[in-house]
Structure formats: structure tokens, C-alpha cells
């Protein structure tokens, strides 16, 4: 969305996408958990050309104090793109309006799944730093933050994943890269709790008919199985007892 119609590249060549993927193929995803020493939990994700770090601090005393909730932990989230992260020129450091909105909707996801009642008066901070962005950074960042939250040992109802579905012409497809995203006809990032497939984050713009929305749902739930496995595998690799037999 948002790209000018001038210079629009061919997004579909011989029924395949520019990078050879079919409409239901995800880009390659790699997650590594526990990558930062100081954070209680962390994860690094490479999702296509996206490179994103997520870290969780807390539960710790809520600041400022008047923000503290005597019944539960408050969640804070900061999603940010590094000034050098995009193919375009240098961007200003610090949260812009887009990042503020993304931080808000990601925060709301963790308010749902984290067992906030276990930590009254405290705060849990989620930091998502996009080091290199190539489309779908909020989904990739949220997927990584979910692993970081588990890595912090903070109890959750579920290990949430996120992915974006969209439309190119008549084709509903999953996981757009930056160029597809810029010239697509619809884009819909979604976060799902895999235990019951409840939707915890939903944003969308462009144009979807009812039928295309239903098709996007199918693609998201199918891709979610793959993403969930990659998340669990990243955690297993951290907690497998290394060298137990030595």
C-alpha cells in the first residue's frame, strides 16, 4: 500500500511472486532465543530480509509510580525502526506516529496473554528494535517478542504468533516483502493465539471482499502452524540441557 502507481514492478510472474514464492509460502524464518545478556528474555528473528531484536525486561517496579496497578502488572511496549533500517534515506530516531500505533497494538496483545495478575504493582517492558526492515516488521517483531517473553520466564496463556496476509490483484497471499507491501492492494497484519485461534491483533487497509477476507484467514492459520513450530524450536534449543551426557 501507499506506493505510487508509477514504476509499479511486476509482482507476479508466471503465477509466482518476485522471489519465486507461491501465494501461500512464507519467507524463510529463523529465530534465536536468549541472545542478550542483560534482558530477562530476548530473541533475534530473521524473517526474509527482516532483522529484528526483541527484549523483555521485568517484571520490575512500575514507573512512574502512579501508573502502577495494584491488581496486575502493566505492560509497556516500544517498537522502533533503526534510522539505518530501510532502503530509503536516513530516518529520524525515536517513535513516529506509525511506531506509536504499532507499539500500542502490540502492547494490547501481551496484556491479553501474559498472566498479569501474578505481578501486581509491576511493569513488564517489551522492546522491539527493527535493525533491518523489509515488510511485515510488526508481525516479525511480535513473533520474536513472544519468544522473548517466554524466554524471560513470564507465564503466558499462549505463545502468540503474527503474520500478514494481503492481496495482489485477484490473488490473496501471505507475508509480503517491502516491494509487495508497497504496491499491494490490501495488507492485513494479524496476531493469533494458536490454542483457540483467537485474533489478538488485527489491522488492515486496502480492499478485501468478504470472500477474500475468509481466504486470508485460511492462509494465516496455515502459516501460523509453521511459525509456531519455529518459535517453539527456538525455545527448545535454549532449554535443552547442553552436554548432559558429558
Amino acid at each position: 500500500m501507499g506506493g505510487s502507481s508509477l514504476n509499479k514492478p511486476e509482482l507476479i510472474i508466471d503465477g509466482k511472486r518476485r522471489d519465486g514464492r507461491s501465494f501461500r509460502d512464507l519467507r524463510p524464518i529463523k529465530i534465536e532465543a536468549s541472545v542478550l545478556k542483560n534482558a530477562e528474555g530476548s530473541a533475534y528473528i530473521e524473517w526474509g530480509r527482516n532483522k529484528i531484536l526483541a527484549a523483555v525486561y521485568g517484571p520490575r517496579e512500575a514507573t512512574p509510580k502512579h501508573m502502577a496497578n495494584p491488581n496486575k502488572a502493566i505492560i509497556k511496549c516500544r517498537y522502533q525502526m533503526a534510522p539505518f533500517s530501510s532502503l530509503e534515506g536516513h530516518s529520524r530516531t525515536g517513535p513516529n506516529r506509525r511506531a506509536t500505533e504499532i507499539s500500542k497494538v502490540i502492547k494490547e496483545v501481551f496484556e491479553n496473554v501474559v498472566m498479569v495478575n501474578e505481578f501486581p504493582g509491576s511493569e513488564i517492558d517489551v522492546f522491539i528494535e527493527v535493525l533491518q526492515g523489509d515488510g511485515g516488521t510488526r508481525a516479525a517483531g511480535l513473533t520474536a517478542a513472544s519468544v522473548a517473553m517466554a524466554n524471560a520466564g513470564i507465564r503466558m496463556k499462549d505463545l502468540v504468533y503474527a503474520v500478514s496476509a494481503g492481496r495482489i490483484g485477484d490473488h490473496v497471499a501471505i507475508d509480503f516483502d517491502m516491494i509487495e507491501d508497497n504496491y499491494s492492494d490490501a495488507d492485513m497484519p494479524v496476531a493469533v493465539a494458536p490454542r483457540n485461534n483467537d485474533v489478538l491483533l488485527l489491522q488492515m487497509d486496502g480492499g478485501f471482499t468478504k470472500e477474500q477476507f475468509a481466504e486470508a484467514k485460511e492462509l494465516i492459520l496455515e502459516a501460523g502452524k509453521t511459525i509456531s513450530e519455529i518459535q517453539k524450536d527456538a525455545l527448545k534449543r535454549v532449554y535443552d540441557v547442553k552436554g548432559a551426557s558429558e
Binding site: V105, E108, V109, E111, N112, M188, A193, N196, N197, D198, V199, L200, L201, L202, Q203, M204, D205, G206, G207, F208, T209, K210, F213, A214, K217, L221
Partner: peptide
Amino acid sequence: IRAMQKGLSGSFSFDELE
């Protein structure tokens, strides 16, 4: 559909959304 936005910490099922 031209735009959608879910808000707050609760959830919707896909059936409800449809």
C-alpha cells in the same frame, strides 16, 4: 473492506470477525 483495526486487550474469533 477498506480498513480494520482491533483494539484493547480482548480478542475476537475469526467467525465473529466474518
